[in-house]
Design a protein around this nucleic acid. Structure first.
Lengths: 204, 204
DNA sequence: CCGTTTATTCACCACATGATGAATAAACGC
DNA sequence: GCGTTTATTCATCATGTGGTGAATAAACGG
């Protein structure tokens, strides 16, 4: 009766269950659901049914775990590859298709986590701004005719539509937009993006 | 020399500095900058140069402080008042004007805080979805002709553009969109919103 | 079969968080 | 002037956090 319940067996487990992957998977999910700050190592460990110290055993710390969790399988340059070679007058569809393909691939979890974590704080928002402005928009807007100031404005407008689309479709998941097919989305929003890219802005 | 530095004077301060408002203001700013989870009571107290216990003296807890901080000075119904009486064919401009007016008023801090706090977690996102779908979109789309399914889709598209606009202009602050005048914004994006509202969707 | 590596658990640390309750002092009402 | 209210500070709690170091046990390599 008074037998002390034996201390949980220490040491390596027998089964071949790969704890590292288990932790990574759980982290990926939790980071996507609650963002970086909203997710704790112990929470990850708990849900993965693993000792918190294991997380540190496999990963250097929370930062590394996050980095590996949201590791984007494709960098923006690759996703948008070829877009700048297209005629600006027909570029909208390609942009939208690329973005939809990216978000509907294996990167989705990571991207949602990235967005959630990024929008949550001013500092990270600044990073996002740099990234969007430099890496993405410069590529998307390459070759669009017009004065530099106007082209930058067009880029921001394109960004506003694309950001809104991703947020509503993948993060907030507003139906029926969230469950429309890729083709439908392209058909519906491409004309608007195209107007931002090369259409008449001042004269509705 | 060895005089112990006297313990900071306790008790009520002489000056008429209203600490309550000071705390509220600081909280409003910090919540907007770092979101709910990213802001701690002690941080607020520190920046307001006030003892952490004061925060609890004036407010029941973090939740109440947050609630009072992001208190929206105008509810959506009021902001969009009259929109549903307008001809759907000319409604886009009114919608955009209303949103811009709201975001550029005293509510801005609270709204940014709300967005940051809301996008950070799944649970709160669900709330946002309900709110947007029921309260806002139903009003904005009232009287728009067409089958129910199509009208809902049009609403989502409008939401995608408006959400993106708010995010890029007020949260991420992408320039030059962030520093454009209200009139410019209206001129540039109204046609796109109008197309979502009543334009031809399938046939670009 | 023995030594090394690796996986797992436990016992801690220092620290920040949200919160409470008592002590003190000024302001206020009478 | 005195009692009450209110503002302010301090000491303290329980909890959760990220992180470290050692102990243990299984797997692996020779």
């Amino acid at each position: 009766m008074s037998g002390s319940l034996q201390p949980l067996r220490r040491g390596r487990r027998s089964g071949g269950e790969d704890s590292r992957e288990l932790i990574l998977g759980t982290a990926r999910r939790l980071f996507a659901e609650h963002g970086f700050d909203g997710t704790s190592l112990r929470q990850v460990a708990r849900e993965a049914q693993v000792d918190p110290a294991m997380v540190h055993h496999f990963f250097k710390g929370k930062d590394e775990l996050f980095a590996l969790s949201v590791e984007l399988p494709a960098d923006p340059e690759q996703v948008l590859a070829g877009v700048e070679t297209l005629d600006p007058g027909e570029r909208a569809e390609a942009i939208i298709r690329a973005v939809l393909r990216l978000w509907e691939g294996p990167a989705q979890h990571g991207l949602v986590a990235f967005v959630r974590g990024t929008i949550g704080s001013t500092a990270k928002t600044a990073l996002l701004r740099e990234m969007v402005a430099r890496t993405i928009l410069s590529r998307v807007m390459a070759g669009v005719p017009g004065p530099a100031g106007e082209v930058r404005m067009r880029g921001d407008l394109v960004a506003s539509q694309m950001v809104g689309l991703m947020l509503v479709r993948y993060v907030v998941r507003l139906d029926p937009l969230a469950s429309a097919t890729q083709d439908e989305v392209v058909r519906m929003v491409a004309p608007n993006v195209q107007r931002y890219l090369t259409g008449e802005l001042d004269n509705p």
